[in-house]
Amino acid sequence: MSTLFAHQAQAEHCNVNFNYGVIIEPNHVRILDNGQTYVQINNDNQLFVRGREILLEAQQTALISDFSKGIRSQVPEIVFIAIEGVEVGLKAVNKVIGGLTGENSASHRKLQEKFDDMQMRLRKKFNHSDKSYYIAPQDFDDFDEIFAGEFEQEIEEIVSESIGTILMAVGEAMANRDEETIEQRVSTFDDRLENMGEELKLEIGTRANQLEQKAEQFCQALSNLDKVETEMQVTISALQDFNLISSERYSHSE
């Protein structure tokens, strides 16, 4: 899995941090500082700072609205990127293994159950339902860690455990072809393994490129949102010390 995201880590650099936790629910956005609500925006236009409502002028309300809508847009996006990043590897491996052992084989069903369990735990990590999202304070500089993180080793273990089953399934298929000599069976076996590797590489490469584009758009959007936050700090005195987003100019590494 680490090689899956190596290309992304090298291709882009996202100098953006979330300094607080963020909760998005249908009617409000809450920014948490050490577990306590620091800033709350209701219906994209009503501001509370540490529980006290801040009366806003029209220009200030427009800034709060832009900021709230931006957060509502981008937090689900990073949750999607994180989940899809792990699923890229799972789907690719699952597809190849299913093709080799059969979609409904016992080994394939067992593998699918492990992947389904992992995906469920990954979703719970963000505590999100269809209308609610949570993301903890974090640094988006290392997308590899966000994508794989604690699940990387588990994915590698699942795949490693499956290799023996794959080889046995392919070997049995080869052994049943009585018309072939041992040399022909070995050659066919090698071809199957080579094709499996190429198919995995193509499947992962395509999906990883799509995710790279989404990650780039996400970083740029957060950098733009940081400018809105700066204006809020300047024009709304109650927010002068508020700094959810820390970003440097978004850039590609050389």
Rank of each mutant, 00 (worst) to 15 (best):
G197V: 10
L200E: 08
M174V: 03
R177I: 13
N176F: 05
D178L: 14
K201A: 14
M196S: 15
D178P: 02
E198T: 14
T181F: 10
E199P: 00
E183V: 04
V170D: 01
D178E: 13
I182G: 06
N195S: 09
I182W: 05
D191N: 03
I182K: 09
G197Y: 09
D191R: 03
E179Y: 09
L200I: 12
E199T: 06
K201D: 14
E194S: 10
Q184Y: 05
E199D: 11
L193Q: 15
A173K: 15
E183T: 05
M196Q: 08
I182D: 09
L200P: 03
I182S: 08
E199L: 06
G197C: 03
L193F: 15
L193M: 15
G171F: 00
M174A: 12
M196D: 07
E183M: 07
N195M: 10
G197D: 06
E172G: 07
L193K: 10
V186S: 13
A175H: 11
T188N: 09
S187E: 11
E172S: 07
A173W: 03
F189L: 00
D191L: 00
R185E: 00
G171V: 00
Q184R: 04
I182E: 11
D190K: 14
N176G: 12
T188W: 05
E199V: 01
M196G: 06
R177S: 09
V186F: 08
A173V: 05
D190P: 02
N195D: 08
E198F: 08
D191I: 00
R185I: 01
A173P: 03
M196F: 12
D178R: 10
Q184A: 06
R177P: 03
R192L: 15
E172I: 00
E172D: 07
I182C: 05
T188H: 02
D190L: 10
R185W: 04
D191A: 01
E180N: 08
L193E: 04
L193H: 10
K201Q: 15
M196R: 10
G197K: 11
T181L: 13
E183S: 06
Q184L: 11
S187Y: 07
Q184H: 06
E179K: 09
M196P: 02
N195T: 08
R185Y: 01
T188E: 05
T181N: 09
M196T: 06
E172A: 04
M196H: 02
L193W: 01
E199Q: 10
N195F: 06
D191K: 01
D191H: 00
E199H: 04
T181D: 07
I182Y: 12
M196Y: 13
E179M: 14
T188A: 03
G171W: 02
T181Y: 00
F189R: 02
G197F: 07
N176M: 12
T181I: 10
D178G: 09
Q184D: 09
E180P: 04
A175Y: 06
Q184S: 14
E172Q: 04
T188S: 08
M174R: 06
R192Y: 12
D191S: 01
A173D: 14
D178I: 03
S187K: 14
R185H: 14
D191M: 02
L200V: 09
Q184M: 13
